[in-house]
Structure formats: structure tokens, C-alpha cells
Nucleic acid binder design. Sequence first.
DNA 1: TAAATAGTGTCTCTAAGACAATATCTC
DNA 2: GAGATATTGTCTTAGAGACACTATTTA
Lengths: 281, 281
Amino acid sequence: MQKAEQNMTEAEFLQNYDLTRYPRPSITVDIVTFGVTGEAERNYRQDEKKSLSILLIKRGGHPCRGMWALPGGFLQMDETLEECAYRELREETDLRPDTLMPMGAFSQVDRDPRGRIISNSYISIVDEENVRALAGDDAAEAKWFTVQFSEEADDGTAELILRNAESDIVIASKVRHSKTQFGRKEYEVVDSGGLAFDHAKIIATAFGIVRKYATDFDILFDFMPALFTLSGLQKVQETLLGITLLPANFRRKIMPLVEETDLSTHGAGHRPAKLYRQKAV
Amino acid sequence: MQKAEQNMTEAEFLQNYDLTRYPRPSITVDIVTFGVTGEAERNYRQDEKKSLSILLIKRGGHPCRGMWALPGGFLQMDETLEECAYRELREETDLRPDTLMPMGAFSQVDRDPRGRIISNSYISIVDEENVRALAGDDAAEAKWFTVQFSEEADDGTAELILRNAESDIVIASKVRHSKTQFGRKEYEVVDSGGLAFDHAKIIATAFGIVRKYATDFDILFDFMPALFTLSGLQKVQETLLGITLLPANFRRKIMPLVEETDLSTHGAGHRPAKLYRQKAV
DNA sequence: TAAATAGTGTCTCTAAGACAATATCTC
DNA sequence: GAGATATTGTCTTAGAGACACTATTTA
């Protein structure tokens, strides 16, 4: 007969303990990858417009086969959630981002038809060069989709519209803002619009977080290559926040965080811009 | 013989799919509960000093028996993580906080001696009245500990000291700041000082988050009862941030967020203060 | 040379901080 | 009346926004 727990040593307790006797959920990691993509130029001397985009992959297997979904997959037993996020992103999109930020768990009991699966989601950000790198790789069914998130209506609903221009794909989903805690907005999916699982909810939440952080300057640098122009950096913040800024004021505020280099842009149909790098902290 | 997955319908696929064939971790929820506690008054007319405190329970069973730990427990299959956090807090401390905020997952492979267990942690905040309510309930081995978090040394280490004055308990743990992402600091445990598992890490992370948010005014109201004085509110922010503010300036900034009531404090040994409530958004 | 962006200088306005002064209660 | 906090008013200063103006490149 087994000793009562109170009389065991910790070593004896652990010897007899088997976690797998208890029911427990499965764990996946999903990654919302943001990048700023350029759109078609209007004429030779005007800089290109930019859009905030996220990366989706087309699901090849069940469930939700053929639908667009966030990259991600099941946690393995020998890796942390963060390691899992890096691995899945590498395997499914060949991206290796510098920035990976946990954005919390999605744990609705019925969020996946396969059973009880909790998604621990991450936000990653890739720079312009990596945005273009993916575009050239057509092996994987991974595509950038521009994100357009409407204002919330009186009842809290908002439209999340994802577009891939080259392939003429439009995903129109609808979410409802349910509550805000610590400045973080939570949403429910009203109409997935063809996105797999509850990924519309995850994307809407991630979008809110990125918007919130975009007022801090630090996050902006994650969207940029090592060398960048101040107007490029400004355009990223404008894109993230959906606003327009005056160059003079933006420069003044950003200057303490960057260092000038000897290099500059050329051939842009207008005055060249000096290239800057992020100042080391 | 079983059909290949490609030829199945989604319904057929789901019929044959069994999540539990795959290894998967166990999931717990741990809650870092913050409250502002009063300390002994110095004389009849001086207001009491305040300290930021967290709630710990003494573990009754293995592992880490007898050590102090965060309230929490295993996720059940029919509840979300947030529901689990509310349930565990109610069961273990009888508290029902209004504020519960996800603060992410802790997923180091070896963080629990029982095996692979991921902690999804939450921050909760309770107001003065609930802080006192617990003090009177000695059924559970739950106690408030004041939190003192030192400045980081050059090598990133900092001391996290938890104290319960009545029982003369001091828990001195040491953590090292490893990285910062999106303004969120991550720590490693250097010396747990007697705290169970990696709870020193979780507490240090939670403390950083609360400090960060304490500059926004919204969070302050979670620490307050329905009616409060402006100087009480000010003292909470001063306690959270470890700073001193000038009353005139604090009032000016907070006024748009509160409404005056007809009530006021009495018998405090000095001029009475009007009671305010949070203004509805 | 026109059209576009790059970059500088300066004015105004707002909000935060410092601080002086007055008000009101209890012992 | 002394000692504490409550409350109001005002001066100064730092920073954000607006905007005018100059500089530099390429088709």
C-alpha cells in the first residue's frame, strides 16, 4: 500500500507522481508577423506608399484546409514557447525575426474543432529586406496581406480586411470589441471571413498591441533595416498609427535615438537623404 | 485500411483524430495579486504610510512543501485560463478581484520538478477593503507580503524582498534582468530565497508590468474602493512608482477622470477631504 | 527648370513641475 | 493654537505641433 502524501519525502512524492494521469490541453503557438510593405509607385519621383501587412499561410491539411491562417504549430516537449515560435516561423516561412513578443493565450474551450487546444500567441516584426525576401520564395504558400482595421462602430464591431494585391485575395472578417484591460483590447469573432480558427481574434488583438506600442519609438526600428532614412522611419510610424506627421517635428523627436552615417540614398528623383542607424543604448 | 488524409472530408478527419495521442504539457495558472497595504501610523494626525504588497500562500503539499508560493493550480478542461485564475483565487484566498490581466506564459522546460508544466500567469489587483478582508480570515495560510525591489546592479541583478511584518517572515530572492521586449522586462532567478518554483521570476516580471502601467491613471482605480480621497489615490501612485508627487499637480491631472461626491472624510486629525469616485467613461 | 523630398529655424500653445498661500479640521 | 492635510492659484519651463523657408537631386 502506498504511503499517504503527508508522510513522503519530496523525492518519494515525485517518484510516485505522474502528471499524465490528469487530463490536459494541447498547446500550439501562433505567430502574427508584421512588416511594412511598399505599394506601387505613382511616378518616378514620388516615394512609394506603405502599408502594414501580416503574413498568412494557406492551410494544406485538415482542419480548415484551404483557409488562410497564422503560421504556427504544436509545442514540442523539449522547447519553450518562444523557441517553438522561432522554429515554426522558420519552418513555415523561412523567416528569422529579431523581435518576438508574447501576446498572451487564447483559451476558449471550443476554439479548435480537434479538441481542447490553447494557442499561446506571439507577435514578430520583420524589416523591409525580409519582407522582400519572402516575396521571392514561392515554395511555401505564404503571402503578405495588407491590414485594414476600421473604426469601431457604436456596438463595438469593426471590420478587419486583409488583402493580397498580386493574387487578388480579400479576406473580410468582423470582430467585436468586448473589453479592455490594462490598455489591451480583447475581441470576439463575429464573422471569420474565411480565416482559420479564431485567428481573426488573434490578429485583431495583435494589431491593437502594435498600434499601442507604435507611439513608443523603440518598436519602429524593428521594421527597419540596419541603415534607414528618417523619412522612411517616419513613414513606418505613420503607417502603424494611420496618421500623418510633420517631418520637422518627427526629426526633432527621433534625433536623440539615431546616429548619422556617411552614406546617403541616390537616384530617387529628389534630394538624397542621409542614412541613419539606431543609436546603441 | 484508413483513407489518406488528403482524401478525407473534414468530418472524417476529425472523427479519426485524437489529440491525446501526442505528448503535451500540463497547464497551470498562477496569479500575482497586488494590493496597497497600510503600515502603522506614527501619530494621530499623520496619514498612514502605504506599501505595495502581494499575496502568497504557504504550500501544504509536495513539491515545495512549506514554501511560499503564488496562488494557482491546474487548468480544468472545461474552463478558460481566465476562468481558472478566478476560480483558483477564490478557492485559495476567497478573493474576487475586478481586475485580472494576462501577463504571459512561463515555459522553461525544467521549471517544475513534477514534469513539463507551463504557467500562464495573471495579475490581479484588489482594493483596500479586500486587503483588510483577507487579513481577518485566518483559515487559509494566505498572507500579504510587502514588495521591495531594488535597483538593478551593473550586472543586471536585483533583489526582490518580500516581508510579512506580523509573522516576521522575510523572503529575500535575487533575480537577473535578461532582456526587455516591448518595454517588458524578463528576469532569471539567481536565488529563489525560498519562494516555490520560478515564482520569483513571475513576481519580478509582474512587478515590472504594474510599475509600467502605474503611470497611466486607469490602473490606480483598481487599488481603490468605490469612494476615495484624491490624496489616497495619489499615495497609491506614489507607492507603485516609488516617487513623491506634489498634491497640486496630481489633482490637476486626475480631475478629468473623477467626480466629486457630497461625502467627505472625518476625524483624521486634520482638514477633511472630499470623497471622489471614478468618472464613468 | 519643375517636382519632389531633405533639412533648418522659429513661433505658439499646452501641460507638467515648482511653489506660495489659504482653508479647515482635531487634539 | 499647533500640527497636520486639503485645496487653490500662479509662475516657469520643456516639449509638441504648425509652418515658413532653404537645399538638393533627377528627368
